[in-house]
Each structure stands twice: as structure tokens, then as C-alpha cells.
Amino acid sequence: MTSDNDRRRGLLARLRGRPVARSRGRRRLGAAVRLFAALMLAGGAYTVFAPGVQAQDNPPLTAAGNEGKALFDVSCVTCHGRNAQGVEGRGPSLIGVGSASVEFQVSSGRMPMARQEAQAMRKPPQFTDEQVRQLGQYIQELGGGPEVPNGDLREGANLATGGELFRINCSQCHAFGGGGGALSSGKYAPSLAPASDRQIYAAMLSGPQNMPVFGDNQITPQEKADIIAYIQDTLKNDGDPGGFNLGRYGPSTEGIAIFLVGIVALVFASLWIAGKS
């Protein structure tokens, strides 16, 4: 790409800097040169952008990608097909989902799936972090797609903004305390309690299962950092100043508590008091 650009810029500069009056021979020569340059440009761009015949059969994978492919061919190929193009009725194509998606699904143990059901469940992961990275690399090299950036994903975060964004964008499904909630027909938004920074980031980028995609133009990387910080620092480490949080299920467990604790204790108290006659 860069070489093409330089070339074009050079051509334009030459056009701009050219004297107005020129001999016919020079004009013809100039036209020939421009034609040649234009052909070179078109041809060059084609070679760069066009999928090579070679690439389809045998993509030039990096070492990590090759490792990933080996893992893929053992664990994922049944449902996602030989080149991750998907298998009708079993698993979707993984072309273009990016390493973010692989990282989320595999590192949280959701993939490989135990069985076909409404939604993949979080399980103890089957692969090590290194293997997850390799699988991600393979899928990334196959079709590209969103990637989770490296480094501290909470850097420079603002908790208040994060809280506001969380309540607007996340709490409808994951609930105010991040404990998750029900969706239709057996689907659900999982609890955020076991999720790591990278998993939350990857989920926002890739929109796994029933979650919508929150791309970088909807929620900027900085806002993602704010949300992650709110979830990890406030929701998980807030320490519930009011005492035992009853699972943060809202008024439903509070209602159970008032009967199981309050009423039961007081009925025993009344048995005791009325018994002393």
C-alpha cells in the first residue's frame, strides 16, 4: 500500500510541477509514461487486494497460527468446518469473527460447547491461555476481525462515566449488580462475576451469543475502559456497605428474607412469649 501511495504522490507532484508549453514528442512520451504508471497502479492494487489463488488453498500461516490450526482441527472442526467456514445446523462460520470472539468464547470455556442448546454456558476452560491465543491467531489470520488490544484495559478509567454507561447499556440484561438476567426462550445474560477484563472487552467487541456488538464507534475504547473499571472495581469490590447483599437480586430475595428471617424469628418469639403463662 505505502509504495503505491508514494508513487501516486510522486506522479501528482510531477503533474503539478510541469511547464505549460511542451513539445508534441514530450507530450506523447509523457502520456505513455502516465499510461504505464496508471496500468502499474491498477495492476499493483489488484495484486495487493485480490485474493490469491494460492491463499485459498494454503494460507501462509504464522507459527502461532499453525499451532492454532492444529488445535482447531482437533477440537472445533466438527461444528465449525474444515476451514472454519461453518457447518449447516451445527456451527456458524468463523470467517471475520476475529480473535476477540475466539478469546471470549474459548477462554470462558463456552467453546467447545457441551451440546447444542439455547446458549453456550460458561465452563472451566478447555485450553490454556497460550492455546487460546494460538486459536485466536489462526482465526484472525483466516478472516480478520476485531481484536482485543494488549495492555491495561482499565487505564485512565472514570468510574462515574463507567457506571452511567453500564446502567444505560448493560443493566437491562446483566442487571444493576451484574448478576445476569433472563432473556426469552431459555437464553440469558450471564453473571459478570467470573469475567476478566479481557473477556468483558472481547464480549463488547464481538457480541457473543445474544449480546449486541458494542463496536468502537458506539462505545469508544476509553468508554469500554470506564465500563470495565466500573464492573471490576465497583460492582465486584464494592463490599456491599449494607451487609449481606442477598445475591443482589433486588426485591425478590428481600421478600423471601423478610418471611424466612423476620416472620420466622418473630413467630418463634411469639410462641415463646405466649408459652410463658
Binding site: 446502567r167 448478576g179 438476567g181 426485591p251 425478590s252
Partner: peptide, 18 residues
């Protein structure tokens, strides 16, 4: 945890008292 009321903020598991 509920935050200030905004018309566009509705959490999952929004229930009234029992």
C-alpha cells in the same frame, strides 16, 4: 447501584417490593 432515575435506564430484575 441503581443510579439516578433516567427514563432510558431499566435494569433487569426490576421488581417491586414483595
Amino acid at each position: 447501584l441503581f443510579g439516578p432515575y433516567e427514563a432510558w435506564v431499566v435494569s433487569a430484575a426490576s421488581q417491586p417490593d414483595w
